[in-house]
């Protein structure tokens, strides 16, 4: 293992410190604030990996923040705060997914009655964020990857997040993280190639018609 390597380094990375809450001690408001600030960036990446397209990351971050304030005191093992935060984030994203499904059903009913325009599919992948076309397309493709590959792939994009830190969040060994990131990248590359080929064939058909 290369300890000099940025991707493998631990808490010494600028821009991201994985806070270890005090063992066995009650977590005070300042500590909770610190834990939140130090972890919210990767929490956002987890939300991005799991949220429905229509939901804003910011809204979900508020939900996670609220859950953290309410429930962190119930954590039996304060050192498990990262996997716990990840679960909270995934639950928030999934709950939002269920909500979106319900709304889609309602909208479909309204649309069936010919009263409203259908979804134009233009919603940003990151909600309120203005994104480049390529980022948006890749995110849509990344969403179709299995969860085990999608999460490490996006977490690796969080500034300064090492394999070790990703492993701590996902509760997996560092080597597994590296393998999954590598495979995830290959899978995404193949998906993008298939997607481009499909686009080309569709535009070819349209041009020929």
């Amino acid at each position: 293992m290369d300890e000099q390597n940025p991707a493998r380094a631990g808490n010494d990375q600028p821009g991201l410190t994985m806070v270890q809450p005090p063992e066995g001690a009650a977590i005070g408001p300042d500590e909770i604030k610190r834990i939140w600030r130090e972890n919210r960036r990767w929490v956002a990446a987890i939300l991005l990996a799991h949220k429905p397209r229509e939901t804003d990351v910011e809204d979900l971050l508020q939900v996670v923040a609220m859950a953290m304030v309410r429930k962190i005191g119930e954590l039996r093992d304060p050192s498990a705060v990262r996997p716990w935060l990840r679960t909270v984030a995934i639950n928030a994203a999934r709950a939002s997914g269920r909500e979106v499904k319900r709304s889609r059903r309602q909208l479909r009913l309204v649309r069936d009655r010919g009263e409203a325009p259908g979804p134009d599919g233009s919603a940003d992948a990151a909600g309120t964020v203005e994104l480049g076309e390529e980022s948006r397309r890749l995110m849509e493709l990344a969403r179709t990857l299995p969860e085990g590959y999608r999460e490490p792939l996006l977490l690796r994009c969080v500034r300064g997040m090492s394999y070790r830190q990703i492993g701590a969040v996902l509760d997996l060994p560092e080597t597994t993280i590296e393998t999954r990131i590598a495979r995830g990248r290959r899978m995404l590359r193949e998906l993008a190639e298939q997607d481009s080929a499909k686009d080309r064939s569709e535009s070819g058909v349209a041009a020929g018609a």
Binding site: I32, K33, W36, R40, R41, V43, A44, A45, L47, L48, V57, E58, L61, Q62, A65, M66, M68, V69, R70, A125, A126, T128, V129, E130, L131, G132, E134, S135, R136, L138, M139, A142, L153, L154, R156, C157, V158, R159, R185, R186, L188, R189, A192
Partner: peptide, 30 residues
């Protein structure tokens, strides 16, 4: 290709990270 895709995804995650930087914990009793 993989490098370009990684950079495109990182641009997106960076944007979301900036949003996260602005989200503070609720203040006061809930």
């Amino acid at each position: 290709k993989t490098q370009a895709q990684h950079e495109a995804l990182c641009a997106l995650v960076d944007e979301v990270g900036l949003i996260a930087d602005d989200v503070e914990l609720p203040v006061g009793p809930l």
